[in-house]
Amino acid sequence: MNVFRLVGDLSHLLAIIILLLKIWKTRSCAGVSGKSQILFSLVFITRYLDLFTNFISVYNSVMKIIYLVTSLGTVYLMYFKFKATYDSNHDTFRIEFLVVPVGGLSFLVNHDFTPLEILWTFSIYLESVAILPQLFMISKTGEAETITSHYLFALGSYRALYIVNWVYRYYTEGFFDLIAIVAGCVQTILYCDFFYLYITKVLKGKQLKLPA
Protein backbone atom coordinates (compact mmCIF):
# COMPACT_ATOMS: atom_id res chain seq x y z
CA MET A 1 0.00 0.00 0.00
CA ASN A 2 1.18 3.55 -0.74
CA VAL A 3 -0.25 6.99 -0.09
CA PHE A 4 -1.37 7.45 -3.71
CA ARG A 5 -3.45 4.27 -3.66
CA LEU A 6 -4.80 5.02 -0.18
CA VAL A 7 -5.91 8.53 -1.14
CA GLY A 8 -7.28 7.07 -4.37
CA ASP A 9 -9.37 4.51 -2.49
CA LEU A 10 -10.62 7.18 -0.08
CA SER A 11 -11.51 9.43 -3.02
CA HIS A 12 -13.43 6.55 -4.55
CA LEU A 13 -15.21 5.89 -1.25
CA LEU A 14 -15.96 9.62 -0.91
CA ALA A 15 -17.51 9.69 -4.38
CA ILE A 16 -19.76 6.73 -3.60
CA ILE A 17 -20.81 8.24 -0.25
CA ILE A 18 -21.49 11.68 -1.84
CA LEU A 19 -23.81 10.09 -4.39
CA LEU A 20 -25.57 7.90 -1.84
CA LEU A 21 -26.13 10.87 0.49
CA LYS A 22 -27.30 13.11 -2.38
CA ILE A 23 -29.95 10.57 -3.37
CA TRP A 24 -30.91 9.72 0.20
CA LYS A 25 -31.07 13.35 1.52
CA THR A 26 -32.78 14.89 -1.50
CA ARG A 27 -34.84 11.72 -1.99
CA SER A 28 -34.18 12.24 -5.66
CA CYS A 29 -31.85 10.78 -8.27
CA ALA A 30 -32.39 13.55 -10.81
CA GLY A 31 -29.37 14.03 -13.04
CA VAL A 32 -27.84 10.70 -12.02
CA SER A 33 -27.41 7.92 -14.57
CA GLY A 34 -28.83 4.68 -13.24
CA LYS A 35 -27.11 2.85 -16.07
CA SER A 36 -23.69 3.93 -14.88
CA GLN A 37 -24.59 2.79 -11.38
CA ILE A 38 -25.63 -0.61 -12.72
CA LEU A 39 -22.31 -0.87 -14.55
CA PHE A 40 -20.38 0.06 -11.39
CA SER A 41 -22.23 -2.64 -9.43
CA LEU A 42 -21.34 -5.12 -12.18
CA VAL A 43 -17.71 -3.97 -11.98
CA PHE A 44 -17.55 -4.67 -8.25
CA ILE A 45 -19.41 -8.00 -8.46
CA THR A 46 -17.16 -9.39 -11.21
CA ARG A 47 -14.00 -8.02 -9.57
CA TYR A 48 -14.61 -9.13 -5.98
CA LEU A 49 -15.72 -12.73 -6.53
CA ASP A 50 -12.59 -13.78 -4.63
CA LEU A 51 -13.75 -11.80 -1.60
CA PHE A 52 -14.19 -14.95 0.50
CA THR A 53 -11.56 -17.15 -1.11
CA ASN A 54 -8.55 -14.83 -1.30
CA PHE A 55 -7.94 -12.86 1.90
CA ILE A 56 -5.48 -9.99 1.33
CA SER A 57 -5.98 -7.77 4.41
CA VAL A 58 -8.76 -6.49 6.65
CA TYR A 59 -8.65 -3.15 4.82
CA ASN A 60 -8.99 -4.90 1.44
CA SER A 61 -11.94 -7.05 2.52
CA VAL A 62 -13.74 -4.24 4.34
CA MET A 63 -13.42 -1.85 1.39
CA LYS A 64 -14.66 -4.52 -1.05
CA ILE A 65 -17.73 -5.13 1.10
CA ILE A 66 -18.38 -1.38 1.44
CA TYR A 67 -18.11 -0.89 -2.34
CA LEU A 68 -20.44 -3.80 -3.06
CA VAL A 69 -23.06 -2.77 -0.49
CA THR A 70 -23.05 0.95 -1.34
CA SER A 71 -23.13 0.47 -5.13
CA LEU A 72 -25.97 -2.07 -4.93
CA GLY A 73 -27.70 0.19 -2.41
CA THR A 74 -27.48 3.09 -4.86
CA VAL A 75 -28.98 0.97 -7.64
CA TYR A 76 -31.76 -0.08 -5.25
CA LEU A 77 -32.51 3.55 -4.34
CA MET A 78 -32.57 4.60 -7.99
CA TYR A 79 -34.63 1.80 -9.45
CA PHE A 80 -36.92 1.01 -6.58
CA LYS A 81 -37.21 3.44 -3.68
CA PHE A 82 -36.90 6.70 -5.62
CA LYS A 83 -37.83 5.28 -9.01
CA ALA A 84 -40.29 8.13 -9.60
CA THR A 85 -37.41 10.63 -9.66
CA TYR A 86 -35.25 8.59 -12.05
CA ASP A 87 -34.81 10.57 -15.28
CA SER A 88 -35.04 7.67 -17.76
CA ASN A 89 -35.69 10.06 -20.67
CA HIS A 90 -32.14 11.41 -20.44
CA ASP A 91 -30.45 8.21 -19.29
CA THR A 92 -30.56 6.58 -22.70
CA PHE A 93 -27.00 5.35 -23.34
CA ARG A 94 -27.14 1.82 -24.80
CA ILE A 95 -25.01 -0.04 -22.22
CA GLU A 96 -25.04 -3.20 -24.35
CA PHE A 97 -22.70 -1.25 -26.65
CA LEU A 98 -20.29 -1.22 -23.71
CA VAL A 99 -20.82 -4.62 -22.09
CA VAL A 100 -20.61 -6.71 -25.27
CA PRO A 101 -17.33 -5.30 -26.68
CA VAL A 102 -15.79 -5.23 -23.19
CA GLY A 103 -16.88 -8.84 -22.68
CA GLY A 104 -15.35 -9.87 -25.99
CA LEU A 105 -12.11 -8.01 -25.32
CA SER A 106 -11.74 -9.61 -21.89
CA PHE A 107 -11.71 -13.01 -23.59
CA LEU A 108 -9.11 -11.90 -26.13
CA VAL A 109 -6.76 -9.80 -24.01
CA ASN A 110 -6.12 -11.10 -20.49
CA HIS A 111 -3.30 -12.38 -18.29
CA ASP A 112 -4.68 -15.88 -17.82
CA PHE A 113 -7.53 -17.73 -19.54
CA THR A 114 -9.31 -18.76 -16.34
CA PRO A 115 -12.86 -17.76 -15.29
CA LEU A 116 -11.73 -15.62 -12.33
CA GLU A 117 -9.04 -13.85 -14.38
CA ILE A 118 -11.38 -13.20 -17.33
CA LEU A 119 -14.03 -11.80 -14.99
CA TRP A 120 -11.40 -9.59 -13.33
CA THR A 121 -10.27 -8.38 -16.77
CA PHE A 122 -13.90 -7.77 -17.77
CA SER A 123 -14.34 -5.70 -14.61
CA ILE A 124 -11.22 -3.62 -15.33
CA TYR A 125 -12.25 -2.90 -18.92
CA LEU A 126 -15.87 -2.20 -17.92
CA GLU A 127 -14.85 0.22 -15.20
CA SER A 128 -12.91 2.29 -17.72
CA VAL A 129 -16.09 3.04 -19.70
CA ALA A 130 -18.75 2.74 -16.97
CA ILE A 131 -18.98 6.51 -16.52
CA LEU A 132 -19.96 7.09 -20.18
CA PRO A 133 -23.74 6.88 -19.59
CA GLN A 134 -23.38 9.49 -16.83
CA LEU A 135 -21.28 11.84 -18.98
CA PHE A 136 -23.67 11.25 -21.89
CA MET A 137 -26.64 12.12 -19.67
CA ILE A 138 -24.99 15.37 -18.53
CA SER A 139 -24.25 16.28 -22.16
CA LYS A 140 -27.92 15.69 -22.98
CA THR A 141 -29.29 17.74 -20.08
CA GLY A 142 -26.48 20.29 -20.64
CA GLU A 143 -25.88 20.71 -16.92
CA ALA A 144 -25.19 18.88 -13.65
CA GLU A 145 -26.06 19.64 -10.04
CA THR A 146 -23.05 20.87 -8.10
CA ILE A 147 -23.17 17.83 -5.80
CA THR A 148 -23.12 15.54 -8.85
CA SER A 149 -20.07 17.37 -10.18
CA HIS A 150 -18.29 16.84 -6.82
CA TYR A 151 -19.18 13.15 -7.13
CA LEU A 152 -17.68 13.01 -10.62
CA PHE A 153 -14.55 14.89 -9.55
CA ALA A 154 -13.89 12.46 -6.67
CA LEU A 155 -14.64 9.48 -8.91
CA GLY A 156 -12.34 10.71 -11.68
CA SER A 157 -9.59 11.57 -9.20
CA TYR A 158 -9.55 8.04 -7.75
CA ARG A 159 -8.31 6.38 -10.94
CA ALA A 160 -5.95 9.31 -11.70
CA LEU A 161 -4.38 8.66 -8.28
CA TYR A 162 -4.19 4.96 -9.11
CA ILE A 163 -2.10 5.85 -12.16
CA VAL A 164 0.33 7.66 -9.85
CA ASN A 165 0.25 4.56 -7.61
CA TRP A 166 1.19 2.35 -10.60
CA VAL A 167 4.10 4.64 -11.54
CA TYR A 168 5.24 4.58 -7.90
CA ARG A 169 4.94 0.76 -7.68
CA TYR A 170 6.80 0.34 -10.96
CA TYR A 171 9.79 2.32 -9.67
CA THR A 172 9.74 0.96 -6.14
CA GLU A 173 8.61 -2.68 -6.63
CA GLY A 174 9.05 -3.19 -10.36
CA PHE A 175 5.35 -4.14 -10.33
CA PHE A 176 3.07 -3.18 -13.21
CA ASP A 177 -0.12 -4.57 -14.70
CA LEU A 178 -0.51 -3.33 -18.26
CA ILE A 179 -4.22 -4.20 -18.48
CA ALA A 180 -5.04 -2.14 -15.39
CA ILE A 181 -2.75 0.70 -16.50
CA VAL A 182 -4.12 1.02 -20.04
CA ALA A 183 -7.74 0.79 -18.84
CA GLY A 184 -7.00 3.24 -16.03
CA CYS A 185 -5.55 5.75 -18.49
CA VAL A 186 -8.58 5.44 -20.79
CA GLN A 187 -10.86 5.88 -17.77
CA THR A 188 -9.05 9.01 -16.58
CA ILE A 189 -8.87 10.51 -20.08
CA LEU A 190 -12.67 10.27 -20.33
CA TYR A 191 -12.89 12.70 -17.39
CA CYS A 192 -10.52 15.29 -18.85
CA ASP A 193 -13.09 17.67 -20.31
CA PHE A 194 -15.16 17.32 -17.14
CA PHE A 195 -12.09 18.06 -14.99
CA TYR A 196 -11.50 21.21 -17.08
CA LEU A 197 -15.11 22.38 -16.61
CA TYR A 198 -15.04 21.48 -12.91
CA ILE A 199 -11.88 23.44 -12.21
CA THR A 200 -12.77 26.46 -14.36
CA LYS A 201 -16.43 26.65 -13.30
CA VAL A 202 -17.56 24.70 -10.27
CA LEU A 203 -14.57 25.77 -8.16
CA LYS A 204 -15.50 29.37 -9.00
CA GLY A 205 -19.00 28.84 -7.67
CA LYS A 206 -20.65 28.63 -11.07
CA GLN A 207 -23.14 25.96 -12.13
CA LEU A 208 -21.62 23.23 -14.28
CA LYS A 209 -23.06 23.89 -17.72
CA LEU A 210 -21.77 22.05 -20.76
CA PRO A 211 -21.48 24.12 -23.93
CA ALA A 212 -24.72 23.12 -25.68
Partner: peptide, 10 residues
Protein backbone atom coordinates in the same frame (compact mmCIF):
# COMPACT_ATOMS: atom_id res chain seq x y z
CA UNK B 1 6.24 -14.02 -11.71
CA UNK B 2 2.60 -14.33 -12.66
CA UNK B 3 1.93 -17.20 -10.25
CA UNK B 4 2.02 -15.08 -7.13
CA UNK B 5 0.06 -12.39 -8.95
CA UNK B 6 -2.23 -11.72 -5.99
CA UNK B 7 -4.61 -8.92 -6.80
CA UNK B 8 -3.99 -6.72 -3.80
CA UNK B 9 -5.53 -3.60 -5.39
CA UNK B 10 -9.22 -2.76 -5.11
Amino acid sequence: DLEEDTKDEL
